[in-house]
Structures are given as structure tokens and as C-alpha cells.
């Protein structure tokens, strides 16, 4: 199959001052794509052609290529991870596109995700948020019996639904306001429903939200675009969980 690609090309990393003049969209024609190729394999084929011609290949992030690592994630025709719901870019296949389709491929756009090169963005802001409290502190020692702490099944399910987040950043990329509230909500909700999470419950909510705000993400306006593009289909319920946890933590703060 044939596809026409419009890809954001940017040689140098973005700086906060001149975000806008950093790169441009470049048109490529690819005649030998197969409907069975994954989206990233299609980009691999394009890159082989570019290298043969002596041009700079398109840089994009990828690692596991099986939808679990969260490395990949480009914005395809305005939708992070492309047109299939619940699917990462690496698990998206060219059969989702028509023969001769024009496809726009852009990096995720957010101040907190500066572009490093072409389609690669620096998602270090997510790591810094996680470091601020998306974990439980456990003293080392002999492990206790695995089933010593009972967790009701519905609670375990809610925690697990939130824990499926792979931190790909699609929620930020899709949000009109570049808000990270689905990501941060997933972290809060993950621990909120588990007994192990109760110890640091209030400080976690306060620290995660203030870390998120410091990174320069926008504010949620409840459009729910994030849950629509999330490859793990995390519900905006986690945002309500975070709002409630934060409100509680601020009211109880001494």
C-alpha cells in the first residue's frame, strides 16, 4: 500500500524560549508499506529509504513494541497513538489506514514534554512526579506472608485499573490544556485503594499535585479526551479520585 506522510522534523532539542521555530513538517511518500506492518515498522521502512538516500532518518521513541513499556507514542492525525482505541502506536497496524492515506505524524505537544529530536519528547517530568510520592515506603526486612493483608476484590480491581498506566503521556498530548491529571490521578488512585497506600495517603496527594503543577502542565476541564486516547483505557474516575484525595489532604493539613 501507498501512504503519504507528513512528519515533524526537528534537528535540535527544543528550548523554552524558541519552541515555535524549532522544526517543520516534511512530506514523504512511501510506496511499499504493507497493511500487516505495525506503524513503527512502517517508519522503519521509511528510515531505511532515507538512510539509503543519505538523509537523516526520522527519530522516534520505541522499546518493547508489544504495548507494555510506554516508550512509543506519537500523535497521528491529531490523536495520540492513532485511530484505534486502547492501542499503543507500536500495536497500531497499517491496515487501520486506507491505501493512499495522508498521515500527519507529530510529537506530543506540551511545555512539560520538550521535543528532543523529531518525534521524541522528554517525559522526564513524569519521572519527577513519580519521585515526589507515587510509591510506598517500606522498611526492608523479612517479607511477610503474601496473603497477610486482605484486600477486597473490587478495591484490588480499582487499584489495578489505575496501575495499568504505562506513563506514555498520551493523556497530556490529547488534552486541550496539556494537563497531566489522568496520569497523576492514576498514581493517586492506584495507592488510594490499597491498604499499603494509606500510610502516606495525604502527603502523597499533596506532593503529587504540587509536583504536577510545578512541571507546568495545564488544568483539567473535564473533556475526557485523555481517557479516549489512553492505550490502557484508564477512566477519568481516577481524576475524581485525585480531586477528592487532594481536597481531603488539604482540608486535613495542619
Amino acid at each position: 500500500m501507498k501512504v503519504i506522510l507528513h512528519i515533524w522534523r526537528q534537528a535540535k532539542a527544543s528550548t523554552n524560549s524558541d519552541f515555535k521555530q524549532d522544526g517543520k513538517m516534511v512530506r514523504y511518500e512511501l510506496n511499499n508499506a504493507s497493511p500487516d506492518m505495525s506503524f513503527l515498522e512502517m517508519l522503519d521502512v521509511l528510515n531505511e529509504q532515507l538512510i539509503t538516500k543519505g538523509e537523516e532518518p526520522v527519530a522516534f521513541d520505541h522499546d518493547c513494541r508489544e504495548g507494555v513499556c510506554g516508550s512509543c507514542g506519537v500523535v497521528i492525525d491529531g490523536v495520540p497513538h492513532g485511530p484505534e482505541s486502547g492501542t499503543t502506536t507500536c500495536q497500531l497496524h497499517m491496515r487501520s489506514f486506507k491505501d493512499g492515506a495522508e498521515i500527519y505524524i507529530e510529537p506530543m505537544r506540551a511545555k512539560a514534554f520538550p521535543v528532543t529530536k523529531d518525534l521524541i519528547v522528554d517525559r522526564g517530568s513524569f519521572d519527577r512526579i513519580v519521585q515526589s510520592g507515587a510509591f510506598i515506603s517500606v522498611n526492608t526486612g523479612a517479607p511477610q506472608d503474601a496473603n497477610a493483608i486482605l484486600i477486597p476484590k473490587p478495591d484490588a480491581d480499582r487499584a489495578f485499573d489505575a496501575a495499568t498506566c504505562i506513563g506514555c503521556g498520551a493523556c497530556v498530548a490529547a488534552c486541550k490544556n496539556a494537563s497531566a491529571m489522568l496520569f497523576v490521578g492514576a498514581k493517586v488512585s492506584h495507592f488510594k485503594h490499597l491498604p499499603q497506600g494509606q500510610v502516606e495517603r495525604d502527603s502523597r496527594a499533596r506532593n503529587l499535585v504540587s509536583a504536577m503543577d510545578e512541571e507546568g502542565f495545564g488544568n483539567c476541564t473535564n473533556q475526557n479526551e485523555c481517557e479516549a486516547v489512553c492505550p490502557k483505557e484508564i477512566s477519568v474516575r481516577v481524576i475524581a479520585d485525585m480531586n477528592r484525595e487532594y481536597l481531603r489532604a488539604k482540608v486535613l493539613e495542619e
Binding site: 519552541f19 492525525d77 491529531g78 511545555k111 486541550k176 490544556n177 507546568g216 479526551e225
Partner: peptide
């Protein structure tokens, strides 16, 4: 204003999946 600052570069091909006109 903060939301605007949070996305300094707009998408060349903007799109939405489920957001409605009222919310946007």
C-alpha cells in the same frame, strides 16, 4: 492562561475523539 502556556506549540492537524463542543 496557564492552559495556554502549557501547550506552546499547537498541533498542525488538531483532532478530538469524544470531547463535545460545549466542553471545548
Amino acid at each position: 492562561r496557564a492552559n495556554k502556556v502549557a501547550r506552546p506549540v499547537a498541533y498542525r492537524k488538531p483532532n478530538t475523539v469524544q470531547a463535545n463542543m460545549a466542553s471545548r
